[in-house]
Design a protein around this nucleic acid. Structure first.
Length: 271
DNA sequence: ATGCGGACCTGTTAGC
DNA sequence: TGCTAACAGGTCCGCA
């Protein structure tokens, strides 16, 4: 699924096509996603102008005067712009038809995503309010990671994937950032020094920024807002490279399950 | 408060 | 070739 770079790629891809345009109608073919698609999505949204496409964590926020659509892509979702009509495939659950023609098509085979409507301040929404800082924003740094990690016995990989600590770091980029920082993914979060958290915070920022530049990572089926795959896969150092050679030292990359998720690391470079 | 496991759902691939 | 099991980019929730 889309982690932060893929969601940001989607945001940048769709924004120019929908900002300032009016929603003509919304077609919901499959209402049952992680939660049922909000009724307001097809009852209240049509007629509204999408003023701005924002993002908080992995949520896309389509702002209108009377409310905001929250879109989450789950594990397997994508949202892209169709300039010309195309017949829907099996997992094309929702079409947002814009006045003048373009269609925002939401696709999600596993249906772990969500499309919800909210009025009132988005930052107070139940799914948003508990979230930690944006990793590319001003409130995230090594000092924060250090402070929040004291006394915590959980693996540092799980710690940086905890959205209350920092948002947007998913399974791919957690492994990649820990590799760049030279920290073992299984090390207890509370046993990483302040100095090493500074390095890790910078590694998280750099890997996410580079992935955004590449249009995200496509492992199997991700496409961005313009329908194109992301090219960061070529730049991955460890993720999905079990048995292949470490780009830095030549040791073979290992896979290990941590917190029920596959993790990849170099046993020589990461301590 | 923290940490863990289960839940949601479908598709692809590895292994027998 | 065909069946089965494992695994996949997320994250909420309930329990210990």
């Amino acid at each position: 699924m889309p982690e932060l770079p893929e969601v940001e790629t989607t945001r940048r891809g769709i924004a120019p096509h929908v900002e300032g345009r009016r929603v003509a109608r919304v077609l919901v073919r499959q209402r049952q996603l992680r939660w049922p698609v909000s009724e307001a999505i097809w009852k209240e949204w049509p007629g509204e102008i999408i003023n701005r496409v924002g993002r908080r964590a992995k949520y896309l926020l389509l702002h209108s005067d009377s409310g905001t659509a929250l879109v989450h892509l789950g594990m397997s979702g994508s949202m892209r712009v169709l300039e010309a009509p195309q017949p829907p495939g099996a997992h094309d659950h929702v079409d947002i038809v814009m006045q003048g023609g373009p269609v925002l098509r939401y696709t999600d085979p596993r249906r772990f995503g969500a499309i919800l409507w909210t009025t009132g301040p988005v930052e107070q929404h139940k799914l948003i309010r508990h979230l930690g800082p944006e990793p590319l924003g001003p409130d995230f740094d090594g000092a924060l990671l250090f402070a929040l990690s004291r006394g915590r016995s959980a693996a540092v990989k799980n710690f940086i994937m905890d959205a209350r600590v920092v948002v947007g770091v998913g399974n791919i980029y957690a492994s990649e950032a820990l590799y760049r920082a030279g920290i073992s993914p299984v090390r207890a979060a509370g046993r990483v020094s302040r100095q090493r958290y500074e390095v890790l915070a910078e590694a998280i920022r750099s890997v996410l920024s580079s992935a955004i530049k590449a249009g995200g990572t496509t492992l199997r089926d991700f496409v961005g807002g313009e329908g194109r795959p992301g090219y960061f896969r070529q730049e991955l150092d460890v993720y999905d490279r079990e048995g292949e050679l470490c780009h830095r030292c030549g040791e073979s990359v290992r896979r290990r399950v941590i917190g029920q998720r596959s993790s990849f690391y170099c046993p020589a470079c990461q301590r």
